[in-house]
């Protein structure tokens, strides 16, 4: 475990920085309706934190924190949640109708369903992008006599 990934300095910095990246991503998502940002950019920042861990510690460590199957499920759940918010609008007469109380301007709870939509989009983008990068990290190009071959395995090197 210890000899995997990058050097100890990189690992240490990554360990310190990771919570702050997550915090920044969450704040982008939650304040998306008041300040610049939103579900998409916040979700990308969240994924960025996991990519940092992936580069510093290797894929085994990251897949223990966030397994790919769970990320796939979260991806679908985010999309379904967004659709559910849209369908809730039918209760008050229209698709995507903003049926929650609007609150006061510039407060965190101030735009009805927009904040919920942002959370769902953030969930979807973060987990979807993580799955994409995970799949890329599992791929290997192997040089053989016939040429370059593509190989993909979910097994870690220790299992083999």
């Amino acid at each position: 475990m210890n000899n995997k990934g990058m050097s100890e300095i990189v690992k240490g910095i990554a360990r310190i920085v990771f919570p702050f990246i997550l915090l920044y991503g969450l704040s982008l998502i939650l304040y998306g309706h008041i300040t610049p940002g939103g579900g998409f950019s916040g979700g990308v920042v969240l994924t960025g934190g996991f990519v940092l861990l992936l580069l510093a510690f290797g894929k085994d460590y990251v897949f223990r924190i966030l397994p790919v199957d769970i990320a796939k499920a979260l991806d679908s759940a985010g999309a379904l949640g967004f659709l559910a918010i849209a369908l809730l609008g039918f209760l008050c007469g229209s698709f995507f109708y903003n049926l929650l109380p609007k609150g006061y301007i510039f407060h965190l709870w101030s735009a009805g369903t927009i904040i919920l939509s942002n959370i769902m989009i953030g969930l979807k983008i973060a987990s979807g992008l993580f799955v994409a990068i995970a799949v890329l990290s599992m791929a290997r190009l192997i040089h053989t006599k016939e040429g370059i071959k593509y190989k993909q395995s979910r097994k870690t090197e220790e299992d083999q």
Binding site: K72, S76, F90
Partner: peptide, 24 residues
Amino acid sequence: SHLIILPVAIYLGAAFLIALLYKK
């Protein structure tokens, strides 16, 4: 008139429901 939006909603919901529940 809600019926006109429903095909899109049904297909999007179906896509992610299948991916979530029945992928095995």
